[in-house]
Design a protein around this nucleic acid. Structure first.
Lengths: 200, 200
DNA sequence: TGTACATCAGTGAACGCGCGTTCACTGATGTAC
DNA sequence: TGTACATCAGTGAACGCGCGTTCACTGATGTAC
């Protein structure tokens, strides 16, 4: 049964969205093509009508994740007032380093979720990661810009802040449920330091 | 053919060592039991004489990685002079954030290599990760201690420095070969900042 | 606008493959006397 | 110390299973006239 073009496009988007979520939860290797298709309400046989390979879907799902993660930062950078930007950035960090309720689906940062796996991924996916990282750093710099700072200082600050955020989140998620106190301590320390340095 | 106790122990150690290296290179899911055993010079059938499951080997290989990663930090903490400790710590960061020669086997930090995968690992492996993290932070604090700083300030500094290192390395390795300049920029920025803050 | 036909996204069975794990068997090592 | 036997790490074939991918087929959609 042939499907309308609009329906086809919507189906593909549903596959990519389901993949992004499932890859976040269980990693690229932890979810099979059949399960992905069923999560999108389809059967697995049609997969290759939309994608050349599972790898291609991995790349597209990554791109979706990075795109979505970028939105809140764009909003901060668009603020005119430096004071507002800093307050919004503090809120961003607060949110980024706050533990989710137990059981709640954690909307984790794609850099944290996919970071370790990147060196082993295909070229397409790594390209998406690189593009996402460059975009992220630009938005970070946009949010952190200050009249008193040169552009290269702002960029260095963006890189450093992002490294600290990603590292803290990676370590904290690694020991969540095993050592909740340590996870919380890591989040608290890094949050306080970053807000002190960049949003005060 | 029964094997001597000493030989048996050595065989198991060889399996764990081979696993640690291969897991570093290709991740837990990227290496099969048969390949691991052959890398240790054995056949796959004997695997379950040494381990209850592949998961158990993953945990033991992780423990080995963390143990080895700890040694250089222990040496720094053992130094008496604060000036020497700071110089050694600067060297540690320098080494940690320096790109390997192309083709050279990269002795990457286990937190970077396994970090993203931890939330999806079994309890045993996550426990090893947590233990490794606590040990690492103590050594970091030992290396960073200063007479002018309270213990809790030193610990906070250790946590923050480690988060920045792990994050920078995760991001840089993610874009190595895709965007070498960006990888280098991340390493340079974070190295300079950390040395300025902690080792000057 | 209506008709005839080609297109192609969907389905579900089937493919080969490699995975983690189990098993019967071997024979040198370790142990009991 | 020497002998007889139980132990158990090793081997390699075999297990079932789920994976990514392919395929023949269906039938509504899109297109050509």
């Amino acid at each position: 049964m042939r499907i309308s073009k609009a329906q086809t496009k919507e189906n593909k988007e549903r596959i990519v969205a389901a993949a992004a979520q499932l890859f976040h939860e269980r990693g690229f290797e932890g979810v099979g093509v059949a399960e992905l298709m069923h999560a999108a309400g389809l059967t697995h046989g049609g997969f290759y009508n939309h994608f050349e390979s599972k790898q291609q879907l991995e790349a597209e799902a990554c791109a979706l994740s990075f795109g979505e993660a970028l939105h809140p930062l764009s909003r901060i950078g668009a603020l005119e007032s430096g004071r507002e930007r800093r307050a919004a950035f503090a809120g961003y960090i607060e949110n980024y380093l706050t533990q989710r309720e137990a059981g709640a689906p954690p909307p984790r940062c794609p850099f944290v979720v996919f970071g370790s796996d990147m060196p082993r991924q295909g070229e397409g996916t790594r390209g998406v990661f690189g593009k996402g990282l460059r975009a992220y750093l630009e938005k970070f710099a946009g949010a952190l810009r200050r009249k008193s700072k040169r552009a290269d200082e702002t960029r260095a600050g963006a890189i450093f802040a992002m490294a600290a955020l990603v590292g803290a989140s990676t370590l904290a998620y690694g020991v969540d449920e095993i050592d909740t106190d340590l996870a919380q301590e890591i989040r608290d320390v890094v949050r306080a330091r970053l807000i002190e340095e960049f949003a005060d």
